[in-house]
């Protein structure tokens, strides 16, 4: 981390960290909420191999969330733990992109969301590995390798479903249509991202959008499907404005933790 001027007062560094904390919280919430959603597939997947693959992906995502939430708690100076973030915030305090909280839908909707998220996550974590402080860069490097597997998994399923049967192609196209309006929010830039970019603590996702469009576009086209052209786009997750389905997700996730105040787990 660097400060712009020699006489930079301590509170400027603190502000820079507060922005980084929010930024890390967003990344961590994305991973946590998507991992939480994917848990629903475990025992319900189309094959045992998929039960395993989706558990593996969920496990990676929860792992990413644990690191990112803990780093956020360090960055904001509160020392909050991963569990304090996950289990004691209200749903309005979660800052995940809406994409990650959408209900799983059928397998095609899940594959479509994985395609959108994994391609984004690979790009973002690679950028993080390149342009962040040591610890964050090390995390980015590890996470980029893991989400690259998730991307391969999503690419392969998009192809199989797109080129499998008329039924699977129809469902896959519908899945893409359903999740596409939620993709753009991942790349949004705002006050927080501008600050972390200026401070050099983390990169912005915005410049990655064109590469993402090209890459997912290639997969979708190769799968014989059409890249959706939605007439609207979702947003609001970063500000804690979620879907109605999000409340029950959080209530379920926090239920045991909240039921036993003072409990250690």
């Amino acid at each position: 981390m660097t400060t712009s001027t020699d006489q930079a007062p301590a509170d400027e560094a603190a502000r820079a960290d507060a922005h980084l904390a929010v930024h890390l919280l967003r990344l961590g919430d994305d991973a946590l909420v998507l991992g939480q959603r994917l848990c629903r597939w475990i025992t319900r997947a189309p094959t045992i191999e998929e039960d395993m693959a989706l558990s593996n992906i969920a496990l990676d995502l929860i792992g990413h969330a644990r690191t990112l939430l803990a780093l956020s708690g360090e960055a904001d100076g509160t020392g909050r733990t991963e569990d304090e973030f996950a289990f004691t915030r209200s749903d309005r305090e979660f800052t995940n992109a809406l994409l990650t909280e959408l209900p799983c839908g059928d397998f095609a909707v899940t594959v479509a969301r994985q395609l959108v998220y994994a391609h984004y996550a690979v790009l973002y974590y690679e950028a993080l590995a390149d342009r962040a402080d040591l610890r964050l860069a090390a995390f980015g490097e590890r996470a980029a390798k893991e989400v690259a597997f998730h991307r391969t998994h999503a690419d392969n399923w998009a192809l199989r479903l797109g080129l499998g049967t008329p039924e699977s192609a129809r469902r896959m196209q519908r899945g893409l249509e359903q999740v596409w309006p939620y993709a753009a929010e991942l790349f949004d830039e705002d006050e927080v991202t501008r600050h972390v970019v200026a401070a050099g603590t983390a990169p912005s996702p915005a410049p990655l959008h064109p590469v993402w469009q090209r890459r997912v576009g290639e997969v979708v086209t190769r799968a014989g499907l059409t890249v959706p052209t939605p007439r609207w786009r979702a947003g609001g997750g970063r500000a804690g404005l979620h879907t109605e389905e999000f409340g029950p997700l959080i209530a379920d996730m926090q239920s045991v933790h909240r039921q036993f105040p003072g409990g250690r787990w």
Binding site: W180, G217, V227, G235, G236
Partner: peptide, 17 residues
């Protein structure tokens, strides 16, 4: 191939607008 999502960027609005 990227034309779809690119078009999205032109219509950024508020939450789910």
């Amino acid at each position: 191939a990227g034309a779809g999502p690119a078009a999205v960027e032109d219509v950024r609005g508020g939450a789910g607008e």
